[in-house]
């Protein structure tokens, strides 16, 4: 069976198969890398070499078009898995010291009934990002903005680490029996409203989205209304405004009351 030599151009199987494959590869490469790109007027290619490079997928330098600059401050926090860094004991300890001045409104254990957010057990990225936004002016609040103004980046990370370390405490209005309204469970897909939990932690977590359980209903409602009206704009690329602007007043109410009652 093996008297023929396979890897030899005298074997017609070898020469035909290799020849055909190489011919198709070369023809398709010529067509795909040179002919087709040059046939596209939109590409404005500088020549054959440019055609080959662009069709091969070599990235081109960014084009300079005039960019419309914002007329308001946007958040410049970059949220990645490395944003906060290590939450070690030193960081938490420093945070605990720094957080003493937060206790008046946010409670000595990060929980209060003052309609200001409860911070105990809050995701560190959230506390850090909001402090940072208060500092840069992307978010404005008469009480918070002056506090944040004098904090260093490390201060904000430490405070965030400290509050993330504290255990979550149910609010005084906790009531497990409040049923979740449809807008929380399924959202409203065609209005571009996903389930709240797909970012806020119950189903999955998107960095920068706060844990909502046990937050004051007054506070949640005020923030949703501010997002809807465009009065609060530190959500990067409108991620929360896109949702809030399509919620009805009744839905905002239901969401606020539901989350206040959650642990």
């Amino acid at each position: 069976m093996s008297e023929q030599k396979l890897f030899s151009f005298r074997n017609s199987w070898f020469s035909t198969s290799v020849g055909t494959t190489v011919a198709i590869a070369i023809a398709s490469a010529l067509a795909g890398l040179i002919w087709l790109p040059l046939a596209q007027p939109d590409l404005k290619l500088a020549g054959i070499w440019d055609a080959i490079c662009s069709a091969a997928g070599i990235p081109r330098a960014p084009v300079s078009a005039s960019v419309q600059q914002p007329d308001f401050k946007t958040s410049n926090v970059v949220l990645t898995p490395d944003t906060i860094g290590r939450k070690d004991a030193v960081s938490i300890g420093r945070g605990a010291t720094l957080a003493q001045r937060c206790a008046i409104c946010h409670g000595p254990q990060g929980v209060s009934d003052a309609n200001s957010p409860n911070l105990a057990g809050q995701f560190a990225e959230v506390t850090y990002k909001e402090l940072h936004d208060f500092k840069t002016g992307a978010r404005v609040n008469v009480v918070m903005s002056p506090f944040a103004a004098n904090m260093s980046d490390q201060d904000m990370k430490d405070v965030a680490a400290y509050y993330a370390y504290l255990p979550r405490v149910p609010s005084s209005k906790a009531d497990e029996k409040v049923p979740p309204p449809p807008i929380v469970v399924t959202g409203a897909p065609m209005r571009n409203i996903p389930p709240c939990g797909s970012c806020h932690g119950e189903l999955d977590y998107k960095a920068g989205s706060p844990w909502l359980g046990g937050q004051s209903a007054v506070y949640i409602k005020a923030q949703l209304q501010a997002f809807a009206a465009g009065a609060r704009r530190n959500d990067i690329s409108q991620q929360m405004r896109n949702i809030a602007r399509h919620m009805t007043a009744e839905e905002i109410d239901q969401v606020a009351r539901y989350y206040e009652a959650q642990p």
């Binding site: 960014p62 078009a65 960019v67 419309q68 600059q69 914002p70 007329d71 946007t74 958040s75 410049n76 970059v78 990645t80 990067i236 690329s237 409108q238």
Partner: peptide, 13 residues
């Protein structure tokens, strides 16, 4: 990471 900081994909653009 930096779409929202500069370049053509900042919010106002």
């Amino acid at each position: 990471r930096t779409l929202h900081l500069s370049g053509e994909f900042i919010e106002s653009n």
